[in-house]
Simulated scan of single mutants.
Amino acid sequence: MEASLFVAGVDEAGRGPLAGPLAVAAVILDPSRPIAGLDDSKKLSEAKREALYPLIIERARAWCVVLIEPDEIDRLNIFQATMTGMSRAVAGLAPGAHEALVDGNRLPKDLPCPGRAIVGGDALEPAISAASILAKVSRDRLMVAMENLHPGYGFAAHKGYPTPAHLAALQMLGPCAQHRRSFAPVRLLLDQARLF
Rank of each mutant, 00 (worst) to 15 (best):
S45Y: 01
E50P: 03
Y53L: 04
G20W: 11
L55G: 00
L22E: 10
L38K: 05
E50N: 04
L44E: 04
R49I: 07
D40R: 10
L44S: 05
R61I: 14
L55T: 07
L22N: 12
L52V: 04
A47M: 01
E50C: 03
V27F: 13
I35M: 06
P31G: 10
P54R: 03
S32Y: 02
G20K: 12
S32V: 08
I35E: 08
V24E: 08
I56R: 06
L22H: 12
D39G: 07
A47N: 05
A51E: 15
I57R: 14
S41P: 07
E46W: 05
P31I: 09
I35Y: 06
R61D: 00
D30F: 04
E50H: 03
A36D: 15
L52F: 05
A25T: 09
D40A: 11
G37L: 07
S41L: 12
Y53Q: 01
L18V: 11
A51F: 00
A36T: 14
A25E: 11
A26H: 09
S45R: 05
P21L: 13
I28S: 09
E46D: 07
A60K: 02
D30H: 06
S32T: 15
V24I: 14
S41A: 14
S32K: 15
I56S: 03
A19K: 12
K48T: 15
D40T: 13
V27K: 09
Y53G: 00
R33W: 01
A36S: 15
L44R: 04
R61T: 12
E50S: 04
S41Q: 08
